[in-house]
Amino acid sequence: MKTMLNVALPKGRLGEKVYAMFEKAGFECPSIKENNRKLIFENEEVGVRYFWVKPSDVAIYVERGAADVGVAGKDILLEYEPDVYEMLDLDIGKCRMAVAAKESFRDDLSRTLRVATKFTNIAKQHYLSKGRDIDIIHLNGSIEIAPILDLSDVIVDIVETGTTLKENNLQVVETIVPISARFIANKASYKFKSEQIDKIVREIAAEQRG
C-alpha cells in the first residue's frame, strides 16, 4: 500500500486555488469536488489525503504532525512561529501586514503607542525592532473600529485592497511585511516522505515558472 501524504488545506477560496495547484502537480483527489460537508478526502491510488481546516489552524496541524504538509499564510507563520519547513512561496493569497491609522494620525513619540491587533506577536516584534514603547490591545475581529472609537492609536492588520480601511477613514501608515500563501512541511514527516513532498514542491515550482 502506498504511504499516504496528509495535506491540510485552508478552508475557503484560497484552499480551492491551492487544491488546483496540487491537482496539476499530479496529486488529484476528485472526491474533494463533491458538494458535501465532508472534511477528509483521500485518493489511495495517488497516495494523498486532503483535509479542510481553518486557515489559522493549518500551521498547528502541520507542526504537530497531524498533517505532513499544508498551506498557510505568511501572517500565521510569523504570528505563531511554528517549527516547520517553509518550502515554497505559492505567490497566491497576496496581501500585506500593515500599520494603519486615522488620516489625522500623528505619531506622538512622547506617549506609549496603543496598538490594536489580532497579530500580537507580529506587532510586538515590529515595534521592538524600532524600540517603540507600545500597549498591545488584542482584538479578535473588526480591528478597524479601534482607532475610530479611540481604543487605539493604530492597528496592525492584513490589508488586501485597502477598501475597508478607506471606508472607515483609515489609511496605511507603514507596511510591515508582504504576505502570501506558503507551502509548509512537518520536519519529521519530510524526512520519511521526502520523495512525495519534493515531487509536489518541484511540480508546483515548475508550474509557477510557467
Binding site: R64, G65, A66, N186, K187, A188, K191
Partner: peptide, 9 residues
C-alpha cells in the same frame, strides 16, 4: 534524530 511516527526532533 527522527523516528517515523513522532512529529518532531
Amino acid at each position: 534524530g527522527f523516528v517515523n511516527g513522532v512529529p518532531g526532533v
